[in-house]
Design a binder for these strands. Structure first.
Lengths: 187, 187
DNA sequence: CCAGATATTCAACATCTGTAGAATGAATTC
DNA sequence: GAATTCATTCTACAGATGTTGAATATCTGG
């Protein structure tokens, strides 16, 4: 009954909830929102489908939880510094497979909620960004850079274009550096 | 009974078949493979669902037909000429909405057939391309360029990133020219 | 105008889906 | 150790989906 003392039951429940969420993330990333069924998630978590509903309400909410991603620090600095920060983030996304992000990316073309989140993310990325970039086309540049970066992550992890999927992340970054810099610098 | 003389019945049937195919294309592009139902296609074409099956066999085959795209000429020339051809094609994809291509793009993250077609397309794009590009990383460069271009078309037509969706195609092309050139030229 | 061909619709199926509520079983508290 | 709380499972429903085969309506050729 104590809120500080955690009983075995609590621990087990939390463990189960987390297992469900982890499997949901994994499956959403693998197959996207529509093709991932509550029943499949339940089976993967070795649990009854009803329990999934009980803990997460419904499929949309479960997806929202599974798609949660640690909010990134806002970009800052000169145009060149911003470019470098973008490339750093991209490198991270190329090295590991950011499961939650992949769930969103995989679903963005068919699930409106996922598309919204991608758009928000791109917009957020541009909040300070577009002010730093000289010229009157800052906002367009932000969108273009976002689209480019999305394309690359997509091509590597989801589409798995042969050479892009196998390549050394640093090699890819080096290839993209001039491209990103040309987009963050006004002509 | 003559094969050269086209009867009214023939004309009507062909008209119906084409109407079905056109609506299928439109809906697949709008909602993707999974979310587009045979019933919805039939309704849009003002026809019975059974007729759709009768003419196109099953959903996969219908998608395959709807996703058919006029095969593009193979790229050729120097690295810079290839870059220019790529930018030209991109401009076309930005100006009009290539419905069949959008159907494939919209579905590529959840429908294996669509993903295959995108990969093949990227691969084909690279057949001559990677030989012209100097350096030993030609194939990787092809994949990266493909990913970038996919990202931009996606961002404009499907994701509809605000400023990217509204911008003048030529403006976008000019922003991307240095990026594409830096990728087609060896450093 | 009639018989046959054929374009199109009707009716039905088996399956899968998200979801709800009752039932069960195990841990906790007193 | 009995009563109670609560994590979990069982059972079921209602709607949607791809697909099928029989039935119908329309056109064609003689």
């Amino acid at each position: 009954m104590n809120s500080v003392n955690e009983t075995t039951r609590d621990r087990r429940r939390i463990e189960t909830q987390e297992r469900i969420l982890a499997e949901a993330r994994r499956l959403f990333a693998e197959a996207g929102y529509d093709r991932t069924t509550i029943r499949a998630i339940a089976a993967a978590a070795q649990v009854d489908p009803g329990l999934v509903m009980h803990y997460y309400g419904n499929k949309q909410q479960l997806f929202a939880r599974a798609a949660e991603t640690k909010s990134q620090a806002v970009l800052d600095g000169t145009a060149d510094e911003i470019a470098e920060q973008l490339l750093d983030r991209l490198r991270q996304s190329l090295i590991e497979e950011p499961v939650a992000s992949l769930a969103v990316l995989r679903s963005m073309l068919t699930h409106p909620d996922a598309a919204d989140e991608v758009r928000e993310n791109a917009q957020l990325r541009g909040s300070t960004f577009s002010k730093v970039i000289p010229g009157d086309d800052g906002e367009l540049r932000v969108d273009v850079v976002s689209a480019v970066l999305i394309g690359v992550v997509l091509g590597r992890h989801l589409l798995k274009l042969d050479h892009l999927a196998d390549a050394d992340p640093d090699k890819i970054i080096e290839l993209l550096r001039p491209a990103v810099e040309s987009l963050t610098r006004a002509e």
